[in-house]
Computed example of a mutant assay.
Amino acid sequence: MPSSDSSINWTSLITICSAAILIGTELLGAAWASGWALAGFFQLGSTVETILQCVFALCALYAIFVFLRQANRVEPVFKRN
């Protein structure tokens, strides 16, 4: 939690947000495509396809969360004065 004597490091914030958008888009796209491909390859049906896509999407969202935490450690968004 930022204290009252900290300010936002805009360069780090923009860098982290840009990277998160890029990586998040790639991960969620891969999650969707993986669910579709596995269900199609094994002929599992549309219900299982949707379930696989949701499971892979949750894994992707967790990976995005972990990435954001690590990125904030490397490039802190809040800088102390």
Rank of each mutant, 00 (worst) to 15 (best):
P2A: 08
P2V: 02
S3C: 03
S4Q: 12
S6L: 00
S6D: 04
I8S: 06
I8H: 03
N9W: 11
T11W: 04
S12A: 13
S12H: 12
L13Y: 13
I14V: 13
I14F: 15
I14R: 09
I14M: 11
T15A: 15
T15Y: 08
T15F: 13
I16E: 02
I16T: 05
C17P: 00
S18H: 13
S18F: 15
S18Q: 11
A19T: 09
A20I: 00
L22R: 08
L22Y: 01
I23Y: 08
I23E: 08
I23L: 14
G24Y: 03
G24M: 01
G24E: 05
T25V: 01
T25Y: 03
L27F: 13
L28T: 09
G29F: 11
G29Y: 14
G29N: 10
A31W: 04
A31P: 00
W32L: 15
A33I: 11
A33C: 03
A33V: 05
S34F: 02
W36D: 03
L38M: 09
A39Y: 03
A39Q: 05
A39L: 03
G40C: 01
G40L: 00
F41P: 05
F41D: 08
F42Y: 13
F42A: 15
Q43W: 04
Q43K: 05
Q43R: 05
L44E: 01
L44H: 04
G45N: 03
T47V: 00
V48F: 13
V48A: 07
E49N: 05
I51K: 15
L52K: 01
L52D: 01
C54M: 11
V55M: 11
F56L: 03
F56N: 05
A57G: 10
A57W: 00
C59D: 14
A60R: 15
L61F: 04
L61D: 04
Y62I: 12
Y62A: 11
Y62H: 13
Y62S: 11
Y62V: 11
A63W: 10
A63L: 13
A63F: 14
F65Y: 10
F65D: 13
V66S: 13
F67Y: 09
L68R: 14
Q70Y: 10
Q70A: 06
A71I: 00
A71S: 01
R73H: 05
R73I: 12
R73A: 12
R73Y: 03
V74H: 08
V77D: 04
V77T: 07
V77R: 11
F78L: 06
R80W: 00
R80Q: 02
R80N: 06
N81D: 12
